[in-house]
């Protein structure tokens, strides 16, 4: 393996350089395009040179588009997804690992199944449920004939409606049905000494105290990893927010960005769109830069 280390090094470097060009080329083009005016672009097309309109384009994003407000939406979705995902995963993994739950392995298998059944695959059903989250209950009542009994008693069958479409809640909740976090925490808990739980019980700590005093502080890194992963995934969601939000006020920044492209055949205002893209990327980029360590850890853990 080690022989010819020199030539391997050269080849590896070449491949890396190609990769860097492949990644940075479009980024550079984004930055360059964002620095020109619409008129300049109409005349010259996309160019590799820099213009002087970058700041002006950023200003236009703030004055002419809903992107800033939509970034707040994105933030709500991303943080909501991350926080709720972390809490739910932590709790469910706790139950699966530390208690002799009946059917625990089946429950865990079901949770894991969500990893191979992503939201994109259950789109239509998810939309139906989101448009009335009582619809499964209604359907069950109808199917079992219970509703006939209810109708006999109260004069009308039970029927409830609550649509969470076009709300922040509706944007976040369907994203949460994802087992990766539970898996991540489970793997982490399994690496802890088994007797820790018993020792805490001997010391007089109940399940809640153990959770708060022992497990929570030990899980800090896992929390950070999962937070970064789910935050990024929430921020970059496209399809679900596109479908679930019907007004510009409720759309996320990524959707808003796509909406800057006019529907008719006119040439899109690429400098404006690119400036928006840069703005929208700043938050996840900062996040990655600051919490890179945890992101890598999370990816490694979820690979296992």
């Amino acid at each position: 393996m080690v022989e010819n280390a020199r030539s391997i090094n050269i080849v590896a470097s070449l491949i890396l350089i190609m990769g860097v060009i492949f990644i940075f080329g479009p980024l550079y083009l984004t930055l360059a395009t964002a620095s020109h005016s619409y008129e300049f672009m109409l005349q010259n097309g996309l160019t590799w040179s820099f213009g002087g309109n970058l700041i002006a384009n950023f200003k236009r994003i703030f004055t002419e588009t809903s992107i800033p407000m939509q970034m707040v939406n994105s933030l709500i979705v991303a943080v909501g997804n991350a926080v709720a995902g972390c809490v739910l995963s932590f709790l469910s993994a706790y139950a699966i690992v530390y208690f002799r739950v009946r059917w625990a392995s089946i429950v865990f298998a079901l949770i894991l199944a969500t990893v191979i059944l992503p939201l994109d695959m259950r789109f239509v059903t998810t939309y139906q449920v989101a448009s009335n989250i009582f619809s499964p209950l209604n359907a069950v009542l109808d199917a079992t004939g219970l509703n006939d009994a209810v109708a006999g008693l109260f004069g009308a069958p039970f029927h409830a409606e609550w649509s969470i479409l076009n709300t922040h809640l509706g944007l976040v909740v369907p994203l949460l049905a994802h087992g990766m976090g539970t898996f991540l925490f489970r793997q982490f808990f399994l690496t802890l000494p088994k007797d820790l739980f018993k020792a805490a019980r001997m010391d007089g700590a109940g399940p809640i105290r153990f959770l708060v005093d022992i497990l929570l502080p030990l899980s800090r890194t896992t929390f950070a990893s999962l937070f970064v992963l789910t935050f990024l995934s929430g921020w970059t969601q496209y399809l679900w927010p596109l479908v679930a939000s019907s007004t510009a006020e409720m759309q996320t920044a990524v959707v808003g960005l796509a909406r800057l492209v006019p529907d008719e055949g006119a040439v899109p205002d690429y400098p404006l769109i690119m400036a928006g893209a840069i703005l929208v990327s700043i938050i996840p980029l900062t996040m990655i830069a600051l919490l890179q360590r945890y992101l890598v850890q999370g990816l490694v853990l979820s690979e296992k």
């Binding site: 007797d195 001997m202 022992i214």
Partner: peptide
């Protein structure tokens, strides 16, 4: 366990790492 007045030492110590 806490009501029984017993204390236990485990093979792998099971100290709280943090």
């Amino acid at each position: 366990p806490k009501e029984r007045g017993c204390a236990m030492v485990f093979q792998n110590y099971a100290l709280y790492p943090h």
